[in-house]
Computed example of a mutant assay.
Amino acid sequence: MTTIKDRGRGRAAVPRAARTALALALLASGALVLGTGGPGDGAAGAVPAAARQDRPAQAGQAPQAAQAEPCDLFRSVPASTEDGPAVKAIKARRSLVVGIDLNSYRWGSRNPNTGQLEGFDIDLAKAIGTAIMGDPDKVVLKSVPTAERIRFIQEGRVDIIVRTMSITCDRMEQIAFSRPYFKTSQRVVVPKSNPARTLDEALNGARVCAAAGSSSLGDLKGRPVKEVVTPENNLDCLVLMQLGKVDATMTDDVLAASQAAQDQTVRVVNDEVRPGVMGVAMLRTSTDLTARVNQVLNDYYTSGTWRRQYDQWLKPYLGDDADRHWPTAQSTLSAQ
């Protein structure tokens, strides 16, 4: 039986005290509850309804303070099955290195019982890699910190990144993106003891956590927060909240819901800003690789695989509305 290779098994280095606190906090909260079984194991792997992400109070209204990106987030090269110079060089090397996350429940994490990497983005990364290389044994999964995603691409440490990465105009000037594969927005996570009803109430005078290098940092600019804390990964923000070091976390709605699923003592505030999309990232010069990834994404969706993976990994806490999360240019622009 063939398996996808895995590199970068551990998380980015942190101080010993922080590692100890992280381990204790995750044990206390029940984070990484994948030990009860995978999502295909029925009720044992399901996330309680109470952990699901709250919906905005007025679904038909534009999100509060939403700011549209001033560029076309769907701009990418046409899909193709042809191998150009970049793909041929990767095949000659006999390995495609994919940057992934190991810290986001149901997106990219390690099952503590089996040791296997699993999640929506993990399955997508494997599908892209196998389609391009023709052999799952030639796909290498490498853990990449949130703050280092762009640098890893630019320095050639990974070929592509499949890691809940929002497409932004600023990032499009530095790296290339595939066509979007998931719709998202920015949400705030707070302890359940926090009575905040809106995003502004949750952030006003608060110590707010947002992962370094994340698009969430831009949404905190100009807001009356007391302090912004920027660890390397989103999971660190959940731990800092558990330890009382921060009052709130700003992150993508899908990761916000993931944190609420991990820890029943936190909730997602019923408000959102900046609708956006996520994509697969790679070098701007690797246009043929981008075209191949776009073809895989098209096939992944039209074959029904995207929907099946949504139901398997995300439906328990994002609800039975997968169509709302598949991005189309018309729906995304109207949301903005």
Score class of each variant (00 low, 15 high):
residue 73 L to Y: 11
residue 60 G to R: 09
residue 50 A to M: 05
residue 230 T to H: 02
residue 220 L to G: 02
residue 317 Y to V: 09
residue 195 P to I: 04
residue 212 A to M: 09
residue 12 A to F: 07
residue 286 S to Q: 03
residue 316 P to M: 02
residue 51 A to R: 04
residue 210 A to K: 04
residue 107 W to C: 11
residue 33 V to C: 11
residue 48 P to E: 02
residue 57 A to I: 13
residue 262 Q to M: 08
residue 138 K to L: 08
residue 82 E to N: 15
residue 6 D to E: 15
residue 127 A to H: 15
residue 316 P to S: 01
residue 147 A to K: 10
residue 333 L to N: 15
residue 280 V to A: 01
residue 331 S to G: 08
residue 240 L to I: 05
residue 179 R to Y: 14
residue 120 F to T: 07
residue 47 V to W: 02
residue 225 V to T: 11
residue 10 G to L: 14
residue 12 A to R: 08
residue 221 K to R: 13
residue 98 V to L: 13
residue 216 S to A: 13
residue 202 A to D: 02
residue 197 R to C: 13
residue 214 S to A: 14
residue 138 K to W: 09
residue 292 R to V: 04
residue 136 P to N: 03
residue 30 G to E: 00
residue 78 P to V: 06
residue 192 K to Y: 11
residue 182 F to T: 05
residue 92 A to G: 08
residue 162 V to G: 05
residue 304 G to N: 01
residue 163 R to K: 15
residue 3 T to Q: 13
residue 279 G to W: 05
residue 302 T to K: 07
residue 251 T to Y: 00
residue 96 L to E: 13
residue 318 L to P: 00
residue 71 C to R: 01
residue 215 S to N: 12
residue 311 D to I: 03
residue 43 A to M: 06
residue 119 G to V: 03
residue 114 T to M: 08
residue 36 T to P: 09
residue 183 K to S: 15
residue 308 R to I: 04
residue 3 T to A: 13
residue 220 L to W: 05
residue 118 E to S: 11
residue 102 L to V: 09
residue 237 C to S: 02
residue 281 A to L: 02
residue 220 L to S: 05
residue 202 A to K: 00
residue 327 P to M: 04
residue 90 I to V: 01
residue 287 T to F: 03
residue 278 M to K: 10
residue 167 I to C: 01
residue 33 V to S: 10
residue 48 P to L: 03
residue 187 R to V: 15
residue 216 S to D: 07
residue 153 I to Y: 12
residue 270 N to F: 11
residue 120 F to C: 06
residue 93 R to W: 12
residue 123 D to S: 08
residue 266 V to D: 00
residue 163 R to V: 14
residue 109 S to A: 10
residue 317 Y to A: 04
residue 64 Q to G: 11
residue 330 Q to W: 10
residue 161 I to V: 14
residue 227 E to I: 03
